[in-house]
């Protein structure tokens, strides 16, 4: 006996849109981790990728609540509206938030802060200490392969040794959608559900799903200084240096990270649809336009990642 439905459907039928296919892949990854790890955690900064990641995670487990906590690595140099957004989001979703503080790592003598240098790199120690303390064995990150050339090389399930290190020369083969998350106690796996999304995919998804983002992703007026050809927002930690002119500019953020090393771009886009138009036409990558920290060396991201960075 054979199935009654043996005729192939007409061509073009049963196609998912690209965004639905990406969403479905991410949902599959979330469920795979939830089914096979003991203590996963999702890195949540309030940045657009982590917001999209959290949104997809909710979908993966609905109607059950998220089966893991979220963690913010807090550099202490925050945009207040992002922290407000973070707290409101976890409250609304009823998820548990773990905050690991770079300031606490500095106070405890785990890392030393150098004047004039952003706390970006220091986050690695705070992150790895928190992973060890809470015994997290799978850590979801919102990194995308289109962001940066070292990230373009990373697996979806990325093995980290007991020192949290990434060894890009010796990654596990990763075939089809069969992931190998096996590890010894003390080692862990970084998991990147949005690996195959581009910046444009993120924005199209934000628009389509009507996902709420911190307001600084949309055009607003702000006092900035032009530094190293980037627009840095004035705040507690960024004050105009001698000879720097304070400008009032209409800007938005393409990425949101540590306030001392994330720049704004000039923009009049006040909606996700307007941002999509801008992103589709841009000639500069999001990190190139906004991250002061990645400009000083050819392999800055790779070197940080090898140490255990996001």
């Amino acid at each position: 006996m054979t199935d009654t439905r043996t005729k192939p459907p007409p061509p073009g039928a049963y196609q998912l849109t690209q965004l639905r296919a990406l969403e479905s892949e991410a949902v599959h990854i979330f469920r795979e981790v939830a089914a096979t790890f003991e203590h996963p955690v999702l890195l949540f900064s309030g940045g657009k990728d982590s917001v999209v990641m959290l949104h997809v995670a909710r979908k993966a487990f609905w109607p059950a609540p998220l089966p893991f906590a979220v963690m913010h690595i807090d550099t202490g140099h925050n945009f207040p509206e992002v922290i407000e957004f973070r707290d409101r989001t976890v409250e609304e979703l009823g998820v548990r938030l773990v905050v690991a503080s770079v300031q606490a790592s500095i106070d405890a003598g785990r890392v030393a802060e150098r004047p004039g240098v952003s706390r970006n790199r220091l986050q690695t120690t705070t992150l790895l200490d928190a992973i060890a303390e809470h015994r997290f064995d799978a850590v979801f990150g919102g990194a995308r392969r289109d962001e940066e050339k070292a990230r373009a090389k990373e697996r979806v399930f990325s093995f980290r040794d007991e020192f949290g290190q990434w060894d890009p020369k010796n990654q596990r083969p990763e075939l089809w959608s069969l992931y190998n998350g096996r590890h010894q106690p003390g080692e862990h796996i970084r998991v990147f559900p949005l690996s195959n999304w581009t910046e444009l995919d993120i924005w199209r998804y934000v628009a389509g799903e009507e996902i709420d983002l911190p307001p600084l992703y949309y055009a607003h007026r702000r006092q900035v200084v032009r530094r190293d050809n980037m627009l840095m927002s004035l705040c507690e930690w960024i004050q105009p240096a001698e000879g720097e002119e304070v400008l009032e500019a209409l800007v938005r953020y393409r990425t949101v990270g540590d306030a001392t090393c994330t720049a704004a771009v000039e923009s009049a886009a006040t909606t996700a649809d307007a941002v999509i138009v801008e992103v589709a036409a841009t000639r500069i990558t999001e990190r190139g336009a906004t991250r002061a920290d990645d400009r000083f060396s050819e392999a800055a991201m790779e070197d940080r990642k090898k140490e255990g960075y996001f």
């Binding site: 289109d146 990654q171 195959n196 581009t198």
Partner: peptide, 8 residues
């Protein structure tokens, strides 16, 4: 080249 690079 040592490992796969994905580009979109």
């Amino acid at each position: 080249t040592i490992d796969v690079a994905y580009r979109y």
